[in-house]
């Protein structure tokens, strides 16, 4: 895998991370906000796999396994919290909690 191909994969990962960041900042639905964090996880995963392949060892793939673990734990906890918040306000709007701004 040449240097140029590595840069291509890194570019894909970076673009996906930035798109996820934009989505996290703009969307107001709690569920879609957490989907966008999963999108950022995807971008980081592509980066890790590309670096691991480039270096010819397995550390990148091992990192992505732990990234999947963290993503699964984050998704379960976040969805539990979202269900709890939804039962309190009966809406998924993040702006329903704007009094947290103080």
């Amino acid at each position: 895998m040449s240097q140029l191909a590595l840069q291509h994969y890194l570019a894909v990962g970076a673009i996906m991370f930035a798109i996820g960041l934009i989505g996290f900042m703009t969307r107001r639905n709690l569920i879609v906000m957490f989907l966008c964090t999963e999108l950022m996880f995807q971008g980081v995963g592509i980066n890790l796999i590309a670096f691991g392949h480039f270096h010819g060892n397995l550390s990148g793939q091992a990192f992505v396994i732990f990234l999947l673990v963290i993503a699964a734990a984050e998704a379960s906890l976040a969805l539990g919290l979202i269900v709890l918040l939804f039962r309190q306000r009966n809406t998924l709007d993040a702006d329903a909690w704007r009094e947290l701004k103080g």
Binding site: M25, T26, R27, R28, T91, L92, D95
Partner: peptide, 17 residues
């Protein structure tokens, strides 16, 4: 729903992203 249809600060968020 309204919170899905109107995004929050699209210009600033796109600029930062």
């Amino acid at each position: 729903s309204e919170y899905d249809n109107v995004s929050r600060e699209p210009i600033f968020a796109s600029a930062i992203g």
